[in-house]
């Protein structure tokens, strides 16, 4: 379960590319291709630069999107869990 302090990183075998504001993600090992919305792309961009906690990701998204913090704090962990389940992002073992 993703919590505020959970540290996340982009999976090494997930390569992505921004196409028209959405993201195409290729999972090399599984041979899968996924499409992410603009928030998913931004999350991957942030995690490519550094491993971040879920709360740090919320902080970054609050600054960039016209959505209130409370909504993001509710929605982002669930979305991050979807990305983990899809094999695009993983929780870093501390």
């Amino acid at each position: 379960m993703i919590e505020a302090g959970t540290i996340l990183k982009k999976c090494a075998d997930a390569r992505y590319r921004n196409v028209g504001g959405e993201g195409i993600v290729v999972r090399q090992t599984a041979g899968e291709v996924l499409v992410l919305n603009d928030v998913g792309v931004r999350v991957l961009e942030l995690l490519e630069a550094a491993d971040l906690s879920a709360s740090a990701l919320v902080d970054a998204l609050v600054a960039e999107y016209a959505v209130d913090r409370a909504t993001l704090e509710q929605d982002v962990p669930a979305y991050l869990q979807e990305l983990v389940d899809a094999g695009v992002v993983e929780c870093r073992v501390v």
Partner: peptide, 8 residues
């Protein structure tokens, strides 16, 4: 299809 969905 959106460009991303099409390319994917």
């Amino acid at each position: 299809l959106s460009p991303a969905a099409a390319v994917a």
